[in-house]
């Protein structure tokens, strides 16, 4: 297979998609999965960045989660996942919390067929100070509070968050309240900084 010159064009996506072979899944299932991956991966990266992951760690963890989803698709299990958006975040989160995961270590990208990556911004380089402060406050939230808030910001209901976090609905709502209260306190105590200035 000849790799596309750039990752973002539609023909490249078609080429890659057509080349994916899935013994246990239909072409339709494969296409649905690829659409899901393309649409959701940046959101998963953002989800982890909210919790304090660097962009490269977040990207790695998100990638690992999608590879796990792919393995499930290969075994015909992916479409049994009731809430794929929640599942993928859960797995990515676990993967990020386990930075030297066993599978990440032996992952290699076949560079022979892959074009040079685009010039990418270094982590946080174009984020404004206000965003960095907000992100830092989010990342400082303890344990499940931060995750509950990050899930809420991604549109998950309390019931869905509860399922992902393995707590009751009421506990999920409590976590969210605590997170917001703590965040208000943290952000209010921040020192004033020039608005909109980039680092």
């Amino acid at each position: 297979m000849t790799g596309p010159q750039h990752g973002g064009d539609a023909s490249g996506l078609e080429q890659l998609r057509a080349a994916l072979i899935l013994p246990q899944a239909s072409i339709h299932e494969r296409d649905v999965f690829v659409e899901f991956l393309v649409a959701e991966q940046p959101f998963v990266v953002r989800f982890l960045m909210r919790l304090g992951a660097t962009s490269s760690d977040a990207e790695d963890a998100a990638q690992e989660a999608f590879i796990r989803a792919w393995q499930m698709l290969n075994r015909g299990l992916w479409f049994k996942v009731r809430e794929p958006r929640g599942w993928i975040r859960h797995v990515a989160l676990r993967s990020w919390q386990r930075p030297n995961g066993c599978r990440r270590r032996d992952r290699e990208i076949p560079t022979a067929e892959v074009p040079e990556p685009h010039a990418r911004p270094s982590d946080g380089s174009e984020l404004t100070l206000a965003t960095l402060a907000t992100r830092s406050a989010l990342a400082s939230l303890p344990g499940n509070e931060g995750i509950a808030l990050a899930l809420k910001m991604d549109g998950f209901t309390s019931a869905e968050s509860a399922q992902i976090l393995g707590v009751t609905d009421q506990q999920a709502r409590d976590l969210l309240k605590k997170a917001r209260r703590r965040l208000r306190r943290t952000l209010a105590s921040e020192q004033p900084s020039p608005e909109g200035r980039t680092l």
């Binding site: 596309p4 973002g8 996506l13 962009s55 990638q63």
Partner: peptide, 13 residues
């Protein structure tokens, strides 16, 4: 920022 640093095509590759 996430969109800028993320390339789903990498994952597909």
């Amino acid at each position: 920022h996430a969109r800028a640093v993320t390339d789903p095509f990498d994952t597909i590759r």
